[in-house]
């Protein structure tokens, strides 16, 4: 089973390769679960039919999709023994996909990736304007960012298939014991503090009061504008704003 999990986890790296608007990650899902279907059923016609059954609408977080794949593997086993119907397998898969996507979006895209980005950027900001405080090591920043991020990514991706298969639907109860949401909140608070601190250290190195004031004015304005406008619009508006201010400096 562990060997299977590895094979399927590697296949799941391509889960978004034929992303389409109609059924989203369905091609990647069918591609990932294929080894297990081939192992369960020896008849080629049945294999093809089962894969076709799994070709419906599917969209979830790419890392946590493996959890879903593990659960579906367990359900397929039950179906092959005739304990449940095909409809039930597909319906459970679809019902679970939505909330798992929500968890993944909040945990990974919205919190962990942002946090790792902030850590990497803070190292640069702490070094001050033009390496004022210390010489920044580019390779260190890259290494820390990629290492920190993939520290969560790779175990999540590669162990999820096994967890999903072993615990099946109980994996949700196990997840709930982790109190994910409170950890997310504390990470977010640490992220804000780190960013503010590094911006402070960066601005102190300016040696020019006016530039300092413009810097913090930008931060406050972009916080206020973020509530209403998209990032790119904020960037261009503040870019022009800065140009105008600097002309009169």
């Amino acid at each position: 089973m562990k060997f299977f999990s590895l094979r399927i986890a590697i296949r799941s790296l391509l889960i978004q390769s034929m992303w389409n608007y109609e059924r989203m990650q369905n091609v990647g899902f069918a591609f990932s679960i294929k080894p297990f279907i081939n192992y369960l059923y020896k008849d080629k016609v049945v294999q093809g039919e089962r894969i076709k059954a799994h070709f419906g609408f599917f969209n979830t977080h790419p890392y946590l999709a493996n959890l879903l794949i593990g659960i579906v593997m367990r359900l397929e086993e039950k179906y092959s023994r005739g304990e449940i119907s095909s409809d039930e397998v597909i319906r459970t898969k679809t019902m679970l996909a939505g909330p798992v996507a929500a968890i993944g979006d909040r945990l990974i895209w919205s919190t962990w990736r942002v946090f790792c980005g902030i850590v990497a950027v803070s190292i640069f900001l702490f070094s001050g304007k033009d390496n004022y405080w210390f010489e920044v090591n580019i390779k260190l920043i890259l290494a820390i960012f990629l290492f920190l991020y993939n520290l969560v990514h790779i175990p999540l991706r590669f162990f999820s298939v096994y967890w999903g298969y072993t615990y099946s639907s109980d994996v949700i109860h196990k997840l709930s014991k982790f109190s994910i949401q409170t950890k997310v909140l504390s990470l977010r608070k640490i992220g804000i503090l780190l960013l503010l601190l590094s911006a402070l250290v960066y601005s102190i190195s300016f040696e020019d009061y006016v530039l300092n004031i413009i810097f913090w004015l930008n931060i406050i304005l972009s916080i206020l504008l973020s509530k209403r406008y998209a990032q790119i619009i904020i960037f261009y508006v503040l870019f022009l704003f800065n140009m105008i201010i600097l002309i009169y400096k």
Binding site: S110, V114, G117, I118, V121, L125, R188, K189, G191, I192, L195, L196, A199, Y202, L211, I214, F215, W216, N218, I219, I220, L221, S222, I223, L225, S226, K227, Q231, I234, F235, L238, F239, N242
Partner: peptide, 14 residues
């Protein structure tokens, strides 16, 4: 000064 724009966006997001 440009990093400041991003700092604000990051803080607002969190």
């Amino acid at each position: 000064i440009l990093p400041a724009i991003g700092v604000g966006i990051g803080i607002a997001h969190f």
